[in-house]
Design a protein around this nucleic acid. Structure first.
Ligand SMILES: [Mn+2]
Ligand SMILES: [Mn+2]
Ligand SMILES: [Zn+2]
Ligand SMILES: [Zn+2]
Lengths: 126, 126
DNA sequence: TTTGTTAATGCAACAAGGTTGCGTTATATT
DNA sequence: AATATAACGCAACCTTGTTGCATTAACAAA
């Protein structure tokens, strides 16, 4: 897998993530770009960018899928593991550059983990 | 809100959770009990049991909703916060009695958090 | 035990996020 | 320019979960 051809959709989506520091949901991208590109295309490009190690994905509130830029990941390995913060007021999500110590669990092999913290962001935190 | 009447559906669902130590997904409950109770009923009873502090819910793989028994929670406060482990092989999910230190994040008010760890459970860990 | 109130249920229709199959288009290679 | 095929658009579909409303049943009062 992986992105092979530099199409309009790939270009536009990559630009979305390069000009923003926060995560973006697939839903938001479809709302924003759905007139220009078919939603199927958007889902498929996101999928491939993730396979390529360009983006990483995770599930936010209500199980919605969010994407954000990766730092130092490759197609072979997603090593950029970190928690995410979602504001319950404005809905914004961002990646936290924080190291979370994953607890050792007896008799189990941990392969991945997903840590979603929810609350009020700096803008909504009165 | 909260459960008021002890109906058949409430009884059966409570029994499901009392005879099992692991978490159960709404989907699994509907597959298992869907002939006896309407899925709407199952969703609504789970909802109420959660409001009552009897069950807690969280999202597992693929955004599916899972439920498990609460320990020492009330209708007013869900204090039973802990990570969950989902086996990527058999799909089983359980509650981890482990304290996770939620990192302090500047300028943000943390209201809740969700920690899902994925890997191989003791049965599937060859 | 009968009656009355209304919470809980079943059903059908719907919502929303995401996926699939397939014919068409456009990118990159020769 | 011709070719191969990755990527695209479209429509139809799938899944989990929700909603409105008429009907049923839990429970308390009479
Ligand atoms: Mn991230
Ligand atoms: Mn739990
Ligand atoms: Zn906010
Ligand atoms: Zn397992």
């Amino acid at each position: 897998m992986g992105v092979i051809r530099k199409t309009k959709a790939v270009e536009v989506l990559l630009n979305e993530f390069n000009t923003s520091t926060v995560a973006i949901s697939a839903k938001a991208l479809i709302e924003q770009l759905g007139d220009t590109f078919n939603k199927t295309t958007i889902y498929r490009v996101l999928d491939k960018l993730e396979d390529d190690g360009v983006l990483h994905s995770f599930l936010g509130k209500e199980g919605l899928k969010w994407y954000a830029k990766c730092n130092g990941c490759t197609a072979k390995e997603h090593k950029d593991v970190h928690p995410h913060f979602q504001c319950l007021v404005c809905g914004k999500v961002d990646c936290l550059s924080i190291n979370v110590t994953i607890p050792k669990i007896p008799n189990r092999k941990i392969e991945m983990s997903q840590f979603l913290i929810q609350g009020k962001c700096e803008d909504c935190f009165t």
